[in-house]
């Protein structure tokens, strides 16, 4: 069950690589949050109820519902439809995505061999998510895409931490979540400001400060 879920999580990335409508990204993001929630429900058993409740809160409520909803409203408000032409075209992006997938699975196999107590598939897919999100950040130009990609990065890291299954103290978890939440909130605030102050809302307009 968890294997299927995790493959599904990987395919969301492919979807994002191929799509060019911003709203589609947000939907993929919501899907990722939901899948993470399901993963926790299915896979994780031996943890305290408070931590469990917390994880549910984090994945389903925040990652799956609140943040996507929040971002969607921003996108609709600012009437952003499509991604502008990225540096590397859509076609090659998909090609690169498949390469990233390959690398992810190689990492998964390798991690299975190292005997370090990692869940291989979790590990591989999380690496796929992280690398893919970084690639998207570099490649895509819209600022809102960057915010979305940051969320994917966070999801990847979350998955990575699940792959290790080391329990963090609750204080840390709360802090991480708070940071994430405030971070996204700030991103959106600044995104709105940039929308106000600059005509275009892609990253090339932000190159005034240089030497």
């Amino acid at each position: 069950m968890s294997d299927i879920l995790i493959i599904l999580l990987g395919t969301t990335i492919l979807y994002i690589f191929a799509a060019s409508r911003i709203e589609a990204y947000v939907k993929a993001l919501a899907l990722q949050g939901t899948i993470l929630f399901l993963l926790i429900v299915v896979d994780i058993k031996d943890i305290s109820w408070i931590n469990f409740a917390f994880l549910i809160l984090e994945t389903l409520i925040i990652k799956g519902i609140i943040i996507p909803y929040f971002l969607l409203s921003v996108i609709r408000k600012n009437e952003i439809g499509r991604e502008v032409e990225p540096y590397i075209s859509q076609f090659y992006s998909v090609l690169i995505a498949s390469l990233i997938f390959m690398f992810g699975f190689v990492a998964a196999f390798w991690s299975a061999k190292t005997n370090a107590g990692i869940k291989p598939l979790y590990f591989g897919v999380s690496i796929i998510l992280i690398i893919a999100s970084l690639f998207l950040i570099i490649n895509r130009k819209r600022i809102i895409t960057h915010i979305l990609c940051y969320m994917i990065l966070e999801n990847g890291i979350f998955l990575l931490s699940l792959s290790v299954a080391n329990e963090m103290p609750i204080l840390v978890n709360v802090g991480v979540l708070l940071d994430l939440f405030v971070g996204i909130y700030l991103f959106v605030i600044f995104f709105n400001k940039i929308q106000e102050m600059y005509d275009g809302n892609h990253i090339d307009t932000l190159t005034e400060l240089k030497d």
Partner: peptide
Amino acid sequence: IQSGKMQQYIIYGL
């Protein structure tokens, strides 16, 4: 190095 492009900066790190 200091081109003003944020993505370039991230690439440095990566």
